[in-house]
């Protein structure tokens, strides 16, 4: 009986979690005139015109492509930079290691708003404004420290004897690192990639500041449209639903590692 009450409460919570998303789905399947004229708990005459518009109008669908490009770029960059550094932090004692680690973490905590102005100027100076690489690089500010932090946790779980044995067997460091060590922590790499993807995907402030048209992601397109075109709720909702899809797919792929990633508490 007690278990049932508990399950019931949990189901109620999940319902609360789902309802706002359902409501957006409901809106996305109705035309704007329909939304404004009648209040309805479910879409009575379903239309896909909002989605069709998103997929056929370049200003909308290019937003998704741009976002996917810089998010993937950022994930790859973060991992490439963070893997050797995390190895250094987990294996070596060196001058200033503690301070360096703390300094990296402060960047995870830094308010993005603080960096807004100088970023625009910095990236203008190096001619990177409105490119995917600019946003990917800017997101490294918080994703690289995060990646180092998560990977260091996974690497510290691998006994050092493995490294020693490999070096005695005549492995060079790069060969050992790429062919032996990284496969050992592939779950950690997956979890790290998940979090890098997540934080780059959800971020708005940098993505909006550093892009104009060529690399403008969907989140920026959406904020501009809210103020610009007298609020087409159906279209906005359809875009909102579509931004959830990549995240949901990624969650599905890492669902078995998710708990372990959070267990390290390094988010």
């Amino acid at each position: 009986m007690k278990i049932q009450k508990r399950t019931f409460a949990l189901l109620f919570y999940f319902l609360v979690l789902i309802v706002p998303i359902y409501w957006m789905l409901n809106m996305s399947l109705r035309s704007n005139a329909d939304i404004m004229s009648a209040f309805s708990l479910y879409p009575s005459n379903i239309t896909f015109e909002n989605y069709i518009k998103v997929f056929t109008d370049h200003t909308w669908y290019s937003g998704y492509i741009n976002a996917m490009i810089y998010v993937s770029l950022n994930t790859v960059m973060s991992l490439a930079f963070a893997l050797p550094a995390a190895y250094a932090f987990s294996r070596f004692k060196f001058l200033g290691d503690g301070q360096m680690f703390f300094w990296l973490l402060t960047n995870r905590m830094a308010p993005p708003a603080v960096f807004l102005l100088p970023y625009f100027q910095l990236y203008s100076t190096v001619n990177l404004i409105d490119t995917h690489i600019a946003v990917a690089l800017a997101h490294c500010l918080f994703n690289v420290p995060l990646a180092v932090w998560i990977l260091e946790g996974f690497m510290s779980g691998i006994p050092k004897e493995i490294d020693e044995t490999a070096f005695i067997d005549g492995y060079s460091f790069p060969r050992f690192f790429i062919t032996l060590f990284i496969p050992l922590i592939r779950a950690g790499v997956g979890v790290t990639a998940f979090f890098c993807f997540m934080f780059s995907w959800v971020e708005l402030l940098f993505a909006r500041t550093l892009t104009v048209t060529e690399a403008k992601p969907i989140v920026a397109t959406m904020t501009r449209t809210i103020s610009a075109t007298g609020l087409d709720w159906g279209l906005l909702a359809a875009n909102g639903i579509l931004t959830i899809v990549p995240g949901a797919l990624v969650i599905w792929f890492v669902r078995n590692h998710l708990a372990k990633g959070f267990a390290l508490g390094r988010v």
Binding site: L10, F14, L17, I18, V19, P20, I21, W23, M24, M27, I35, M36, F39, M198, W201, V202, E203, L204, I218, V219, M222, T223, I226, W233, L236, A237, N239, G240, T243, I244, P246, G247, A248, V250, I251, W252, R255, L258, A259
Partner: peptide, 28 residues
């Protein structure tokens, strides 16, 4: 449960705002 819980975390932050505008508007 894990998948359901993780969904809100992967929605872009301004879309979260959009969801709640649509959800709490007094007309729609």
């Amino acid at each position: 449960s894990l998948v359901t819980l993780a969904i809100p975390l992967l929605i872009p932050w301004n879309v979260i705002g959009t969801i709640w505008i649509i959800f709490t508007r007094p007309d729609i």
